[in-house]
Write a protein that binds this DNA or RNA. Structure first.
Length: 323
DNA sequence: ATGGTTTTTACTGCGTC
DNA sequence: GACGCGGTAAAAACCAT
């Protein structure tokens, strides 16, 4: 009866024994102490002996706070910030498409031809080696899927970083670009606390779910990424808004999940199912009309699961806070 | 490969609009 | 009668061993 062992629901997790943090935390070459970076002085120093490991690091952020537009111009550094979302981090030079010179005058036809030729070659070189081309494609894919799923920019950014790392560690051979890109996005979404279920992801991806899970697991393991089991609460806001329910309901759903957690109901169950059930139960309690069918659709989970979960949910909330 | 869980599928009965 | 809901049994999916 005592169900104390907490099993993790592995469909969405299986990351519990990833890296014990800091597999590659830098160490001080002198004393082996922990090294800590100090952005203000642009240094990386050892906590123990104070040795400066690196100095003059580049601060890519803006100069300081800007209080109005003029100051913003003054203080920003030149150029666009580097971003991992472009295959060359946005750093490569591009040749403008307008056939104008630096003063805006039209070019002679001879010059125009020359520029056209340069553009061609520039493009060829820029994406020359396979890794670059690989990245270019993958990032395009990540972007496409992310917008299809309505994921915010920071998730895309994270996904890009993960993909880049996978590429650098030679994790690609034998795996499809799309598979790894999809897995990166999945991991990024979960890390960012805006998880999408495997179903949702594979709906917009070109790869099968099986390949996705395989690749995902592989990536997580090889890269030592720490991805905590998805928290059902993270799904709640999305379901609530998809169903046009009130904030009150959302709050209620969270409460239900909270008391359920204390009762250990979460153990081994699908987070999505739990979230869906909580939303349904909450809607009931706040007298808003949603059918189990509605919920099951936005959550892509079966009605039966909702029924089972929401029964447990209500029981748990009774024991936790007897009315 | 096997076994234990969880989720899904499919079907049935009940009450209400 | 259609619909929402609750239940059950059997199948499928999934993870761990």
């Amino acid at each position: 009866m005592t169900d104390t062992t907490i099993k993790t629901y592995s469909g969405e997790t299986e990351s519990e024994e990833t890296t014990e943090q800091s597999g590659e935390q830098e160490r001080c070459p002198e004393c082996g102490g922990r090294v800590v970076s100090d952005a203000e002085h642009a240094e990386t120093v050892c906590e123990d002996c104070g040795l400066v490991v690196e100095e003059d690091e580049i601060d890519r952020g803006p100069e300081w706070r800007a209080f109005d537009a003029a100051e913003k111009d003054e203080k920003s550094r030149v150029g666009a910030p580097t971003t991992n979302m472009m295959h060359d981090q946005g750093l490569s030079t591009n040749i403008g498409w307008q056939d104008k010179d630096a003063y805006g005058r039209a070019l002679s036809s001879r010059q125009r031809q020359k520029m056209q030729r340069l553009r061609t070659w520039n493009e060829r070189f820029r994406t020359r080696d396979s890794k670059e081309r690989n990245l270019k494609q993958a990032l395009g894919e990540i972007d496409r899927m992310a917008s299809a799923l309505g994921l915010p920019e920071n998730v895309r950014e994270t996904a890009s970083v993960i993909y880049r790392r996978a590429l650098e560690e030679d994790l690609l051979p034998g795996r499809s670009i799309e598979g790894v890109a999809t897995a990166s996005l999945y991991a990024a979404a979960r890390q960012a606390g805006t998880p999408r279920s495997l179903d949702e992801i594979s709906a917009v991806s070109r790869v099968e779910k099986m390949e996705l899970t395989r690749t995902y697991r592989y990536i997580i393991r090889e890269l030592g990424l720490e991805v905590k089991p998805a928290d059902p609460e993270h799904y709640v806001p999305r379901f609530v808004s998809d169903l046009d329910l009130s904030d009150e309901t959302e709050r209620m759903a969270r409460e239900l999940l909270e008391s359920a957690r204390q009762e250990g109901v979460h153990s081994g169950k699908s987070p999505v199912g739990l979230a869906a059930a909580a939303v349904y139960a909450a809607a009931l309690l706040t007298n808003e009309k949603v059918t189990q069918n509605d919920v099951s659709e936005v959550a892509s989970i079966s009605e039966v699961t909702i029924r089972n979960r929401y029964k447990e949910l209500l029981e748990a909330s009774d024991t936790a806070a007897p009315a």
